[in-house]
Design a protein around this nucleic acid. Structure first.
Lengths: 233, 233
DNA sequence: CTCTGTGAAAACATTCACAGCG
DNA sequence: CGCTGTGAATGTTTTCACAGAG
């Protein structure tokens, strides 16, 4: 087996998750007018130690100012860049059922730079109708539209049975990553990103916390990137 | 600070996540008629090593048969019991917007033993209307209904701004755990379960995988239990 | 020979603790 | 001082590797 190319420094998996939390919290703080934050303050509201926050940020460079903390706005800019959030992502949703429709109507995606550029559904009956002004297209148009609209990410909101097949079609059409809401593991070839969210698993983790009496508070996490050699939720 | 009571043996946090995956995969295999599974076979389809699977299961007892593997049906029963899935859970949804409506219509919850017994929304305008036959009730009825309907879990599907307040109301009403879809960390007192799912964070993890070129495939995970001394997604 | 359960080793992640900057 | 960045220490999770059961 060939050596796996290890990007730059290789980011601890748990750290990658936390980066999103930092970004979300920082945006909130900037809105509150906090122009500067300390690792202690950030860790406090996220339930992490100050050392943890500093270690995570230090993975990508030196963003802080000794004695002063981090400049909120600058740190946001840096993190956005690191996470690929410094540009808009064009997204398509496959499946116009309950979940698909809710996602298409979820305004936050657009505000955060994830623009839903197309919606597909296999049911001929739905083709031509629309969700909040976005037309539902037949699956047969997928490859054509993904290319024409420069769509980089696909969201799977179809039943379990057709999920892998849809994933294959998305990858063949050229998307670079998939967010999967179907309750099964999706396999994609190396180089394609994958994150899964399973609502039932999320509720089950909750039941487990209660039934088993976990006392630690961190842990399960509702979506999981289940990539090439994956774990998934 | 007092010693934290450690339940039974204390389950590795990542293992708790995987338990849900085992259960989901096992159910699928039983349906296919596979009456027996090996740690290797299970690990294979979930992207885990066989040793990992055995270690996880061994945390709770001895379920396997050397030379033979695990009896699918028995293992499912054991895992269901361990995870608190051997009984029905009554759930309420707070927020009748896009996400709330999609969740109420998500049939899989009921099939898996999570029954949505009530839906609440703060907007007076919605009170009285219904979603798939379930009446939307005003927030003022929350405590009364949670008690009367013996609701144990609450799902938060309201905007960020009111999420913590709704969480407090749910806990005060007596729920034992909360599944949060609002994009912020929710604080609950010790003993109350919490898992969060943030769609934007899920997409962001995907963007990160692509932008940063992560090559490992496991990692981020879309929902996170952000309990008392939490981490959250 | 197949496959589990499990100590022991290795890998990984978090926390500590402190030098050094402003 | 307050606060960052970081090696060293500690704690946790995964993998290895094998004894023993069927």
């Amino acid at each position: 087996m060939p050596e796996r190319k290890s990007n730059s420094k290789s980011i601890p998996r748990p750290a990658a998750r936390r980066l999103s939390l930092y970004l979300r919290e920082l945006a909130s703080r900037l809105e509150q007018g906090e122009t500067t934050v300390s690792s202690k303050g950030l860790g406090r509201t996220l339930g992490l130690t100050d050392a943890q926050v500093r270690k995570d940020l230090a993975l990508f460079g030196q963003f802080g100012h000794p004695g002063r903390g981090y400049a909120t706005s600058d740190l946001i800019d840096s993190l956005r860049k690191i996470m690929g959030r410094d540009r808009a992502w064009r997204v398509c949703v496959v499946g116009a059922g309950n979940i698909g429709r809710a996602l298409v109507s979820y305004d936050r995606f657009r505000r955060e730079g994830f623009e839903i550029a197309a919606v597909f559904d296999g049911a001929a009956a739905l083709a031509g109708s629309d969700i909040g002004g976005i037309r539902i297209r037949p699956m047969t148009d997928l490859a054509k539209v993904v290319t024409a609209e420069k769509i980089a990410l696909g969201i799977i909101a179809v039943p379990r049975e057709s999920a892998q097949q849809v994933a294959d079609a998305l990858v063949a059409a050229g998307v670079r990553g998939i967010l999967n809401f179907a309750p099964r593991r999706i396999e994609v070839r190396e180089g394609i990103g994958i994150v899964s969210v399973d609502f039932t698993v999320a509720l089950e983790q909750l039941a487990f916390q209660i039934a088993f009496g976990r006392d630690d508070g961190d842990a399960a996490s509702g979506h999981s990137p289940d990539a090439e050699a994956p774990t998934q939720v």
